[in-house]
Design a protein around this nucleic acid. Sequence first.
DNA 1: TTTTACCCTTAACCTAGATTAAGAAATGAA
DNA 2: TTCATTTCTTAATCTAGGTTAAGGGTAAAA
Lengths: 193, 193
Amino acid sequence: MQSLFKEFEEILPLSAEESEIIESKIRFSIVKRKGFLLKEGCVCKHYTFVIKGCFKMYGVDDRGFSHNIQFAAEGDWIADIGSFYTQTASKLNIEALEYSEIYQISQPDLYWLFVEVNKVNRMFKVISESNFVEIQNRVLQNFSSTAEQRYLSFLEQYPHLSNRLPNTQIASYLGITPEFLSKIRKGLSKKGL
Amino acid sequence: MQSLFKEFEEILPLSAEESEIIESKIRFSIVKRKGFLLKEGCVCKHYTFVIKGCFKMYGVDDRGFSHNIQFAAEGDWIADIGSFYTQTASKLNIEALEYSEIYQISQPDLYWLFVEVNKVNRMFKVISESNFVEIQNRVLQNFSSTAEQRYLSFLEQYPHLSNRLPNTQIASYLGITPEFLSKIRKGLSKKGL
DNA sequence: TTTTACCCTTAACCTAGATTAAGAAATGAA
DNA sequence: TTCATTTCTTAATCTAGGTTAAGGGTAAAA
């Protein structure tokens, strides 16, 4: 369970006792490719930490098209925060893009940990906040940049994911069609990128 | 100070003592039309409650164009949550669209209140979460709907603002030009809306 | 190992929305 | 009240990105 909270431990080290309490509430689990952590209409009951593998979180519009709003790979946390905190039906799906291994904490257990181990409360506050900042920046960026610019910043921000994900998934994240992404990639390679 | 926390008081009534502690940390203030609560590059130092008037929160892209990402009118809270919680420079501006009257809590005072009055902690958690859900829904909606559909849902969601804001501000929120909004409005009025 | 399902690219054509320009109307400041 | 600043609308023209279709390539499942 080394990788969990690694970044945080550098700032806020956990005592042996705290680690033990946290570990007692965490469940290991395996998810097959195309397996779901969350389906639209269900309540998001777990916060998930990705040990190995990769997930996409996406919504489906009224014409039946999927739109990726977030990816999560090794070391990332994923949940529909809105549904998780309010325990109401989610509009989103979380699906494995590869064979994956995860840790999960259930909503009641996490709330119990918030009280028992105050550091956990602070950790998850930071996770939610950085999630918020990221999505807010995305709204701002989508307003003012072309698909090519958005693709370039995606490559910069997620270099490990760009080689690993099919372009259809990246296109869905960028809000364009795979055909247009293909056109962009062609244009970039002509420019020598 | 009646309107403050009104919705919350129905769920979580405050004792006389709690109200008094909260009130001691809240400052009343007046903002002129075109006055700023926050400027890009500054740290967001206050959470603001709108008693009267209206504000826009917006970012400026590299070509110098503004893009509204949120409005706040009577009874709403506004702050750049990312900047406020991490106390780092904001990329956003908050500007009064009209003469406005507000209450403000400073960051240190709010953190003090989080500890002293646990209900305040819960209240602001709810405020941040609903903010997050709103912005996430916007990302999803912007993926899959035309400008006309987005305008119609804006009208539904903010009926009080649609009569009150200049169309230039609404266009900026929808991510379109005022000229195109004008075209949409013409099209809708032909259809008898 | 074979079959099936998915993935990538290209190209021709199409549309939502941007841009530019310009005049009329409304609003705010003094 | 007057002047200055915004605002709204219309119309002509332009472009980023969507759509459709079709062929070849790759990876997963059986």
